[in-house]
Amino acid sequence: MALVDYAGSSTSASEDEDSTETIRTPAMSSLKRPALPTAAALLGPKKPKPEEFVEDVVDDPELHGGRIRSFKHERGNWATYVYVPSTACADQLEEFQSEAIARLEPHVELQPNESLHLSLSRTVVLQYHQIDEFSRSLQTALNSSTGFAATLRGLRIYTNEERTRTFIAAPLDAAFVEKMTAILQPIDRVMLEYRQQQFYDPASFHVSLLWCVGDQEKVLNEKLKDLQELLEDQDTLSLAVNEVHLKCGNKDFTYTLK
């Protein structure tokens, strides 16, 4: 079988190109087509990726006080929860946070919760394309819900499900649990519709105030009486339940109650 000498073929092609170049005339050069514009010139500079398509993030607990994510951060996943803001008593709660941190400093390192709110859902994961539809479903579900004025009373110690963090929280006054449950029920139905976990059963409505890393439930329960005394110095802790919020990543939706 004969072998094909590709090197020779390449050389010939190169020689033909050189020959063609040497016999071009000025007239032929003037007929040369102008270069086509580049894609960058036509379309402009490359746009940054939309936020929902950013690269995966490597979780580093050192960047957020030692907290560990309950679920892996992945591209397209949006951490989502439903809540009632506690703006009516925010100043009082922030004062308590400062006093409690100073009081317990020798025993445990507490961090203040920056977003003071009463949760009406677990933290779940939505895909970006689900967010607007989920928000509309929640709006429809809450159309007949009625707002009310409530209060927070006392303190209670909680841990998360993984027992990687411990919380000091102000529970909802028991007199308002039934009314809050009436708002929770349509939210739970929407969660079920989207195959998400519903709220804890039994529900324990509260505003988380402070947290620390690890399971420190025993230590904090031993200091609970001292903390109660600090809280009793505050006036009545009012909670205005007149709107519900949906937090999806950096998006926040508001639903006004009747």
Rank of each mutant, 00 (worst) to 15 (best):
Y81L: 12
V82Q: 06
V82A: 07
V82N: 02
Y83K: 05
Y83C: 08
Y83G: 02
Y83I: 03
V84A: 14
P85I: 07
P85K: 06
P85E: 11
P85C: 11
P85Y: 02
P85G: 11
S86Y: 01
S86H: 04
S86V: 09
S86W: 02
T87D: 13
T87P: 06
T87L: 12
A88N: 10
A88L: 09
A88C: 05
A88G: 05
C89L: 01
C89I: 01
C89H: 00
A90H: 05
A90D: 11
D91S: 10
L93R: 00
L93H: 01
E94G: 07
E94P: 02
E94V: 05
E95H: 10
E95C: 04
F96D: 02
F96Y: 08
F96P: 00
F96K: 00
Q97S: 05
Q97K: 01
S98L: 10
S98W: 00
S98Q: 09
E99W: 03
A100N: 07
A100W: 01
A100V: 10
A102L: 13
A102Y: 09
L104H: 03
L104S: 08
L104A: 10
L104N: 10
L104Q: 08
E105N: 15
E105V: 13
E105I: 15
H107K: 14
V108A: 03
V108D: 00
V108M: 04
E109K: 11
L110S: 05
L110A: 07
P112I: 03
N113G: 02
E114C: 00
E114P: 02
E114I: 00
S115V: 05
L116S: 08
L116A: 14
L118G: 12
L118T: 15
L118I: 15
L120S: 09
L120C: 13
L120W: 10
R122I: 02
T123L: 08
T123Q: 13
V124A: 08
V124G: 03
V124E: 13
V125D: 12
V125F: 10
V125S: 13
V125H: 11
L126A: 12
L126T: 10
L126S: 05
Q127C: 14
Q127I: 05
Y128T: 14
Y128S: 14
Y128A: 15
